[in-house]
Amino acid sequence: MRRHPMPRPERFTAVDLLRIGLGVLMVPLGVIILARTLAIAVTVPGILVGGAFLAFGLHQVWLAWSRYRLYRQDKEGGAK
């Protein structure tokens, strides 16, 4: 229901860097938590936290990738 879409990226910002860093960190961490916990037993906390980290990391990576694609589109559009 967001009527104000995210502004199109004009340049690479510190927030983009943070987003990529968090994504790159959270995805393997989530996988490791899931794998290590499930190797012992199926428990709610392991699945919950591992899954949450993984989902959060993937979301951050997806967001960064979407912004990068928009940035490329704008750049190519501007060059033409």
Partner: peptide, 16 residues
């Protein structure tokens, strides 16, 4: 904490 010290067996043992 997760990388250097976390022991999933302790978490599972406390959970159970």
């Amino acid at each position: 904490g997760f990388i250097l010290a976390w022991k999933p067996e302790l978490l599972v043992q406390q959970w159970r």
